[in-house]
Design a protein around this nucleic acid. Structure first.
Lengths: 136, 136
DNA sequence: GTTAAATAAGACTCATTTAGTCCGAGTTCA
DNA sequence: TGAACTCGGACTAAATGAGTCTTATTTAAC
């Protein structure tokens, strides 16, 4: 628990990698997977997700690849997590019952609200940290 | 990712339950599992772990059960997590390589230190929150 | 002493999630 | 036309998490 998934890790590595060159430089999945010894196919999927969420642009065909399309100073770690995991991945408490009636322990379930407070705090941490800050 | 395990959730529920009565009151696993509809056997294991980590005392035999042995105002959420998961469960970054040589991406692995920073922040949140605070 | 109510603890199964692979396609440049 | 790329679904495998089963031990009450 409380551990980044490989996917998120690889996404962060890839984004970080793309921040080192000059703006507009094209990077291929192969190049990145080779350099950091990441599984090519898996990284390829991650790159596709980053494209869909507009973190990077893709160019197909020979000499194609990916270009960072956002300023790393404006990319929040929480955004990357959400882009990769596809959901709000930081859900401390499993109980998502909207009303007490939905909750099988509702008569005395006082655990939910406190955990949500905690969750808010952690979200804040992930939300305030940009990718640029993280790598500096 | 970033979600409490059921075990931790159940542990928090159990500890919270034991804070409501008067000091020294004995609670049984059955009583708690019944009240909150938790799997008895699983909760039993959790109670045993809480005993080993001295959160609660156990009394065996008929009329036995568990008694809270620590002040809930002094129990940190992080302590409960560690007691149940048995390790430092908040390890954002999987790379635990001590030296660059252990790390297969060491030549350019700049991701580790930043993530450790993040991890420290989150640990702080879990560390500063007591069980009592969480339920008030 | 026997029984019933409780904890103790390991081994086991089942389900879910995560990680990684495979394969066939589409795109573009030379 | 072929090589170097991205795209994307289906699939398998590994790891983890959740829950169950079983047997033993302790203790109070009858």
């Amino acid at each position: 628990m409380f551990q980044f998934s490989k996917k998120v890790e690889y996404a962060l590595i890839a984004i970080r990698h793309m921040t080192v060159g000059h703006r507009g430089q094209i990077y291929t999945t192969k190049e990145i997977s080779d350099k950091y010894q990441l599984p090519y196919e898996l990284l390829a999927k991650i790159m596709q997700k980053l494209v869909k969420q507009h973190f990077i642009l893709s160019y197909q065909g020979v000499n194609g690849g990916y270009v960072l399309s956002r300023n790393p100073a404006e990319i929040r770690v929480s955004e990357v997590i959400n882009a990769i995991e596809g959901k709000s991945a930081v859900t401390i408490v499993a109980c998502e019952a909207g009303t007490p009636d939905d909750c099988n322990i509702h008569t005395t379930c006082t655990i939910k609200n406190p955990l949500i407070k905690l969750q808010t705090n952690i979200n804040k941490v992930l939300d305030e940290l940009t990718v640029l800050e993280m790598f500096s």
